[in-house]
Design a protein around this nucleic acid. Sequence first.
DNA 1: CGCCTGATTGATAGTTGTCAAGTTAAGTGG
DNA 2: CCACTTAACTTGACAACTATCAATCAGGCG
Lengths: 249, 249
Amino acid sequence: MTYGSEKIPLHCSKCPLRRLDLFLPFDEEEIKFMESFKSGDMIVEPGTHLFIEGAEAAQLYTVLSGLGIRYKTLENGRRQVVNFVMPGDFLGLQAGVMQKMSHSIEVTTKMRLCVFERSRFYELYKNQPDRGYSLTYLAALEEYFLAEALTTVGQRGALEKVSWGLHRFRIRGEALGLLKNGKVPLPFKQQDLADALGLSLVHTNKTLAKLRSDGIANWQDGELEVKDFQALTKLAMVEDFELPKRPLI
Amino acid sequence: MTYGSEKIPLHCSKCPLRRLDLFLPFDEEEIKFMESFKSGDMIVEPGTHLFIEGAEAAQLYTVLSGLGIRYKTLENGRRQVVNFVMPGDFLGLQAGVMQKMSHSIEVTTKMRLCVFERSRFYELYKNQPDRGYSLTYLAALEEYFLAEALTTVGQRGALEKVSWGLHRFRIRGEALGLLKNGKVPLPFKQQDLADALGLSLVHTNKTLAKLRSDGIANWQDGELEVKDFQALTKLAMVEDFELPKRPLI
DNA sequence: CGCCTGATTGATAGTTGTCAAGTTAAGTGG
DNA sequence: CCACTTAACTTGACAACTATCAATCAGGCG
């Protein structure tokens, strides 16, 4: 490990994420088990690749803070951003059950991780059925988000796509308690969003400019400010969207 | 249930799907448990909706034979086909762990199903850790397929998309033992494929015509004949694709 | 100050969508 | 048994959206 990683002991019971409404509650016994299951903490720098598409992985992670990107690459060099990684996400579930990962994960901002050993993965199912259940839950959630993204990329136009993306960022950021003064941090590049939506960088840029000049949303200097949430919601066609609660591993 | 359903007892140990190489092996005890877990068989006619987006579901299914479509609809009336349902697929996992389904499932050809009660879902985790593990496995597989589809819809051009779709059908059909005389059954409509790839019906049709006139693949009368598999593979940009084995529930 | 990355903008080209009409095959009712 | 209807598939013409190309601009950093 030359990740520039360092030890930072943090007991699960003190995990700041638990306080968030976004996550399903934990009982004492579960916390105790997870504490024993956890093999350590780790901090990684921007640019680090936590997983590489097609490779096996010895460690699995829960994101405590920081942001990243899940992506797949094609023979022709193009890249599809499959999802954005945010605190609370469990990374490596695929490597846990299947042999390898189907996508890569790159760290965008300094990230703090909780580390687990893949070799002990099956223990969860054997000793803690609830935790196994939670893992299926998380996998089903990922499936849900991916289906939404697929629908967006397949059926929405450019303005709707970008609106959908920003709406999604705003909702997730808010649920994580990152909303301050009407703004959520959004330190990704326009190219990242373009690759997530299946649009070209240029067209994404122009669409963002339109949302800005129409007074709907402002994404600049790594921060997103939604000025007219209702209009954004309408453009994104997600009238009744509610971010589902999720288990924390 | 007015689905025109009928009873057809079939013991799990005699399930014809087990013989296929596509599925991971089962031991005696597992078969015994599944037999007790299963609540019945059912046959449904084309046009039936097994699940409706957003609704809760009391039953979960394993597809024994027949084909179907998973899809989501948007406010503007457009439809995204999220995946095609084939024998061996487990339906309703999302409803099992989360409250509701994020997509609908419609039956395309007469389908035979193995039925389970959602209320007993948690038993799997409690009493049969291996089965719980398998469910996570299946969910992770779905995630994998969805990510592939997302990459296709987001980053490939029309000819590549259609090639990818046909390649996928050919591979899945073959793995299910449906390949006969170089043909696999493909009883979907062009509109279904178009909705899966994020293309218009007209353009999909014209792209299929091109593949046909180029002597690469022929999809007509509900059957797909791949005449130049290598060329198709190249167009689809899936050089080293291997269909992963999967557990059967 | 020069270099590099990311963002921005205008001009142009191309792929894909939309419209409309026609064909084929299969069913339905008189 | 035959006209009529309907669903799915075809095909050509045209419009629209989005990509690509090419510059320019702004900020960070050695």
